[in-house]
């Protein structure tokens, strides 16, 4: 197999990796905010549930969580999991990354001085207006470095989809490497992750810079 055929064969896997990455971000970025806000709920029970959720997600391997999402419905309810592979993968990724994003958001929200809330309150903003107009923009600026870290990790973590035998770039690399007795597929996969992250880093740096106009 020539290098060119390898790259062409693996390119479908690259698209799959990008698909996992995009869907996970689209789900986890907003869902993380929901979890962060629930963790600041007035109700003890809600706070306790959310804390337990975050502990379990952070305390177990993502690979194990993916396996649980995939096989769980069959073992627990006897469901047919024929078409469940991709949804399970995305659910696993979103739930895992939401927990991490939630903690980043929470840290950001708690770092905003109480005086900002008080000034907004005295000026007659409603709690929702205060959060959306005053608090959230400042939170986003503060958490950008931590979020960038997480997003870069996500690019590399898409390779864990191989544990559900999902044909993304790393799974394909393993297959081709085995059949062709060659290490080259891994070099191609490595290059793919590096280039993808280079692009991600570039974009996120631009976003971070766009918020440089204030301190």
């Amino acid at each position: 197999m020539t290098l060119e055929t390898m790259i062409i064969t693996m390119s479908s896997g690259m698209l799959e990796a990008i698909k996992i990455f995009t869907l996970t971000l689209a789900g986890a970025l907003p869902f993380g905010m929901v979890i962060a806000l629930l963790k600041k709920s007035r109700f003890f029970v809600i706070r306790a549930i959310v804390s337990a959720y975050i502990s379990v997600i952070r305390g177990t391997p993502l690979m194990l969580q993916l396996l649980a999402w995939y096989f769980g419905p069959y073992y627990l309810f006897g469901f047919n999991i024929g078409n469940w592979r991709f949804p399970a993968l995305i659910m696993g990724f979103i739930c895992n990354y939401s927990a991490y994003f939630a903690e980043i958001y929470r840290g950001g929200i708690e770092s905003i001085p109480v005086g900002q809330y008080e000034a907004a309150e005295v000026l007659g903003y409603t709690p929702a207006q205060t959060f959306n107009r005053i608090i959230l923009p400042q939170v986003i600026k503060r958490i950008m470095p931590a979020v960038t870290n997480e997003i870069i990790t996500l690019v590399k973590d898409t390779s864990l989809a191989f544990s559900l035998a999902y044909a993304e770039v790393f799974s394909l690399a393993k297959q081709i490497s085995a059949s062709q007795a060659s290490f080259t597929p891994f070099v191609i996969a490595g290059t793919f992750y590096f280039v993808a992250n280079y692009v991600v880093e570039f974009i996120l740096k631009r976003i971070e810079k766009s918020m440089d106009y204030y301190k």
Partner: peptide
């Protein structure tokens, strides 16, 4: 709250708003 204003010891201006925006945002929104 529209009857009174409060000036804080620590100013508590909104850092992400320009000076003008600090002055017009609340009158426009609230």
């Amino acid at each position: 709250r529209s009857y009174y204003g409060l000036v804080f010891q620590q100013f508590n201006l909104f850092p992400h708003y320009s000076i003008l925006r600090n002055l017009i945002d609340a009158p426009m929104v609230t």
